[in-house]
């Protein structure tokens, strides 16, 4: 369970990123966060694993405060949270499997990881993670030889290798084409259902949000302006979140895209 308690974030320039957020996300939920550009979606997501520091309040993960965690404690909490980035953030010159194994470093000593002495179970974890996202046969290719969608699936495998209980995905499909977008979103949903990993995704597309989310959170100017099941998130709700009618480029297009 992830818990926000009166969380605020003010950026050095004075911009309010988050304004007094109270929020509870239960284990196993598939939450999609929507909002205009600059609404504070990334700030919200990245404050969960402290890639962004908050200014006040407290964020608790399974009852433990990550806000006050330090050093080893913080690293242990972070290794339980996988993160998927818009730009994949793989080491492009390294092999796929090495990128996935990088998800394991939090479990071992510095020396052991630097000598590449990952235990056999780690290798198995990495390969089974790659299998889950259908990337097993690319294991020994260099990451920069993969397409965007494939790279994103590798980064999902990295989160799985971490044995993360939570996956945070900041616009995971924003640089992908419609078809690959579906594949990546399908992977995330499957992992969420089969492994019960709590998944929180920032998305731009209204229809994708409705299709994949069990719960939608609407953010506007650093505040939560909607929080409810996907079925309740009608076009009117989205208009309210955006402060204007939903425009066409905020829709990815119907499921028929898959038929291509």
């Amino acid at each position: 369970m992830i818990e926000f308690k009166q969380v605020s974030k003010v950026y050095p320039g004075g911009t309010v990123g988050l304004n007094n957020i109270d929020l509870k996300i239960e284990a196993g939920e598939f939450v999609v966060i929507v909002g205009l550009s600059g609404a504070g979606k990334s700030t919200l997501l990245r404050s969960i694993n402290r890639l962004h520091e908050i200014t006040s309040g407290d964020i608790r993960i399974d009852g433990k405060s990550i806000t006050s965690a330090e050093g080893r404690q913080l690293r242990v909490m972070r290794r339980g949270i996988g993160m998927i980035f818009q730009s994949f953030n793989l080491v492009k010159r390294s092999s796929v499997v090495r990128n996935v194994l990088a998800g394991r470093v939090g479990y071992h000593s510095t020396l052991r990881t630097m000598l590449g002495l990952f235990p056999k179970q780690d290798m198995e974890l990495a390969f089974s993670a790659l299998q889950r996202v259908n990337m097993l046969e690319k294991a020994y290719q260099r990451a920069d030889q993969l397409s965007g969608g494939q790279q994103q699936r590798v980064s999902i495998a990295r989160a799985l290798a971490q044995e993360a209980k939570i996956i945070l995905a900041d616009e995971p499909v924003a640089s992908l084409d419609p078809l690959t977008t579906r594949q990546v979103m399908d992977d995330l949903r499957r992992i969420n259902r089969e492994m019960g990993i709590t998944t929180i995704v920032n998305l731009h597309f209204v229809d994708l949000a409705r299709e994949y989310a069990t719960r939608i959170i609407g953010v506007r100017a650093g505040e939560i302006v909607f929080d409810g099941p996907a079925t309740e998130a009608t076009d009117e709700v989205f208009s309210a979140i955006y402060g204007r009618p939903v425009s066409e480029d905020e829709r990815l297009g119907g499921r028929n895209v898959e038929a291509i």
Binding site: R79, F88, V105, M114
Partner: peptide, 20 residues
């Protein structure tokens, strides 16, 4: 990006440099 990813997986500073 890769450095940020290494922070997110819970790497310590040396692992962060070595992998990121």
């Amino acid at each position: 990006g890769p450095m940020e990813a290494m922070t997110a997986v819970g790497a310590n500073k040396l692992q962060w440099i070595y992998f990121g």
